[in-house]
Design a protein around this nucleic acid. Structure first.
Length: 480
RNA sequence: GCCCUCUUCGUCUAGCGGUUAGGACGCUGCCCUUUCAAGGCAGAGAUCACGGGUUCGAAUCCCGUAGAGGGCGCCA
C-alpha cells in the first residue's frame, strides 16, 4: 500500500522546532517509501487566527526543502487541504454519528478552561464533561431545538470497558473508558474540533501513518473509538517524544531557539537544522551524525525512533552547523556570512577573502561580528598578559624583542602578501634557530589584541595591510 | 485529583540475557614544528533513577517506589 503521511500544522505565526521535526519525520517516511507527503492546514480555531501565518508555514517548508506533494497551494485529489474549507464535510460526518447513536447534541453552557490554573486545582472539581445531555430524551432535545438553543455535538462514549491501540513507538496503550469524556466534535460555531477533524481528514485523505507529538497519546483512544464508529480502518499511529529546552521544560519561544526563524536568523543552515533535529529522537543505528537531507531520506527508519524526550543542546547544534558550513562551497559560505559582516568590514576589507579564511572555524554566523571586530578597531588596552604563552614559552621581554625585530624586518618588505610576510617571519625564526610558534604568538597578539582569533597571524597581517600591521606592532612594543 | 508515558556519562545517544557498557558534543592533555583556532590522537566522565524479584547470569524480562513529562478545553 502506498505510504501517505501528512504534516498538519495550525497557523500560529511561527514554526516551532518540535513541529518542524514532526514534519521532517513525516516527510522522510514518505520519501523513503516513495510515498506521498501532504500539507494540511488546521485552522479550526477562529479565535486564534494569526494574520499571514499560513505563509510562515509555506516559507518554513520551502527553506528547509520539505516539499509537499499535495496541499492548499498545489491542490491534489483529496482536497480541500484547509480545514476551514471543509466545514460541510465535518457536519455531514457529525450528523452521521448523530443518527447512528455515537454522538449527541449538547446544550450546556460553554465551559472553557480557566485562565487561572488555581481555579481548576481544588479537589473535587469535575474534570471533563459529565455527559448529562447524552441522557436527554428525544422530546427534550426537540424542545430545545425548537427554542432555537445553540448546541455542540459531542461524541457519545460508553463509560464501561476500555480501548487499546498499538502505537508504533510506544507500544500497546490501554485506557479505561471512564477516563474518557464525551469530547466535543462540532463546536457551536459550526467548526470541528481538532479531535474530530483530524480523524475525519486523516481517513478521507488516505493517511496511512499518523505522526504527531506524544501529547496526543492520551486522547488517541477517543479517536480510535471514532474510527470504529465510522467503520474505518485505523491507520498506523506514530507518536513522537517531545523536544525540551535547556531547562528541561518544553522548548519555548522565550529561549530564542524554539522557532525556526530564530535559528535561521542566527545564521544556522536549514540543512543543519534538519540534521540536528532528526537526531533528537531518532538515530540511524550507526555512528554517523552528519547528514544531508538526501542522506536522511536514505537512512531514515521509523523503527529507530526513540521514546524519551530530548533536550535541544545549542552547543552541539552549533558544532554540527559548523560541520555543514565546512562542507559548503566557498561561494555559498561567503553568501551566508555576508549578512553578518559589519559595514566597516565590507568597506575596508576583502570580505570574500575573509570568508575563505574563516569558513573552517565558524560554527554560528551570528558570532561573526564579535569575531572580526578587531580588524576594524584594535582595543589598545588589551592585557599584556596575553603575550605570555606557556606552550610557546613566550614572555613579555621576549615578545618585545621579537616584535622589535619584526617591525624592522617587515617595514623593509616591498610586497605585502601571504608569501612575503610568511617568508620574512619564517626566515627570522630560522635566523634565531627558533620554532615558528614562539614568533607567531606575539605577532598574532600584537595584531589582534585577542587570545583567540578567527584566523592566524600571517592572515591577519595580510588582511590589515602593511601600514596598519606595523602600527599595531609599534603599539604593542610601546605597551611592553 | 485521576489517567498515560518516560528514566544509560553534564547533553544527544548505541545497547534489545553474557560487552573492559560503544560513539558524538562539551571538558582536559598531547601531536601537528605555517600559528591561537581548526584537524589528528589520548584521557577523565555512567554504582545503567531506586528497591525487590525471575535467571547460572539482568542496563536488557517481571513487580513496586521515586522523579520528570504529557493528558483530562466549544486549543491544537
Amino acid at each position: 500500500m502506498e505510504v501517505r503521511t501528512r504534516f498538519a500544522p495550525s497557523p500560529t505565526g511561527y514554526m516551532h522546532i518540535g513541529n518542524l521535526r514532526t514534519a521532517l519525520y513525516a516527510y522522510l517516511h514518505a520519501r523513503k517509501n516513495k510515498g506521498t507527503f501532504i500539507l494540511r492546514i488546521e485552522d479550526t480555531d477562529q479565535a486564534r487566527l494569526v494574520e499571514d501565518s499560513v505563509k510562515v508555514i509555506y516559507d518554513s517548508l520551502a527553506i528547509t526543502g520539505l516539499e509537499h506533494d499535495e496541499g492548499p497551494d498545489i491542490g491534489g485529489p483529496v482536497g480541500p487541504y484547509v480545514q476551514s474549507a471543509r466545514l460541510p464535510i465535518y457536519r455531514q460526518h457529525a450528523e452521521q454519528l448523530l443518527s447512528a447513536g455515537h454522538a449527541y447534541r449538547c446544550f450546556c453552557e460553554k465551559h472553557e478552561k480557566s485562565e487561572d490554573p488555581s481555579e481548576e486545582e481544588h479537589e473535587g472539581v469535575i474534570l471533563g464533561y459529565d455527559g448529562r445531555c447524552g441522557r436527554l430524551s428525544e422530546a427534550e432535545v426537540k424542545a430545545n431545538l425548537d427554542k432555537g438553543m445553540p448546541y455542540v455535538i459531542r461524541q457519545k462514549i460508553d463509560h464501561d470497558g476500555r480501548t487499546a491501540f498499538k502505537d508504533f513507538v510506544y507500544g500497546e496503550i490501554t485506557v479505561e473508558h471512564k477516563q474518557l469524556d464525551d469530547q466535543i466534535l462540532l463546536k457551536r460555531d459550526g467548526y470541528p474540533t481538532y479531535n474530530f477533524a483530524n480523524v475525519v481528514d486523516d481517513h478521507l485523505m488516505g493517511i496511512t501513518h499518523v505522526m504527531r507529538g506524544c501529547e496526543y497519546i492520551s486522547s488517541t483512544p477517543k479517536y480510535i473509538l471514532l474510527y470504529k464508529a465510522f467503520g474505518w480502518e485505523i491507520p498506523e499511529h506514530i507518536h513522537l517524544p517531545h523536544i525540551m529546552g535547556p531547562n528541561g521544560k518544553k522548548l519555548s519561544k522565550r529561549e530564542g531557539s524554539a522557532a525556526l526563524s530564530d535559528l535561521l536568523d542566527k545564521g544556522y543552515l536549514p540543512e543543519a537544522v534538519l540534521n540536528y533535529i532528526a537526531l533528537l529522537g531518532w538515530n540511524p543505528g550507526t555512528e554517523q551524525e552528519f547528514f544531508t537531507k538526501a542522506g536522511l531520506i536514505e537512512k531514515f527508519d521509523i523503527a529507530r525512533i526513540g521514546r524519551a524526550p530530548a533536550m535541544f543542546d545549542e552547543v552541539k547544534f552549533s558544532w554540527l552547523n559548523g560541520q555543514h558550513i565546512k562542507a559548503l562551497q566557498p561561494a555559498a559560505a561567503h553568501a551566508l556570512f555576508l549578512k553578518f559582516y559589519p559595514e566597516k568590514i565590507l568597506k575596508d576589507f576583502d570580505a570574500a577573502k575573509l570568508s575563505g579564511l574563516i569558513q573552517g572555524k565558524i560554527e554560528k554566523p551570528s558570532d561573526i561580528p564579535a569575531m572580526v571586530a578587531f580588524l576594524t578597531a584594535l582595543d589598545e588596552n588589551y592585557s599584556t598578559e596575553l603575550f605570555i604563552n606557556k606552550k610557546n614559552k613566550t614572555t613579555l621581554e621576549g615578545s618585545r624583542a621579537v616584535l622589535t625585530d619584526l617591525q624592522a624586518l617587515l617595514s623593509g618588505l616591498s610586497a605585502w602578501d601571504h608569501a612575503a610576510v610568511y617568508g620574512a617571519v619564517n626566515s627570522y625564526a630560522e635566523s634565531k634557530a627558533s620554532k615558528i610558534g614562539p614568533i607567531m604568538w606575539p605577532l598574532r597578539i600584537a595584531l589582534s589584541g585577542l587570545a583567540v582569533t578567527p584566523t592566524g597571524a600571517i592572515e591577519i597581517a595580510e588582511l590589515l595591510g602593511k601600514e596598519e600591521s606595523l602600527r599595531r606592532i609599534s603599539v604593542a612594543i610601546g605597551r611592553l
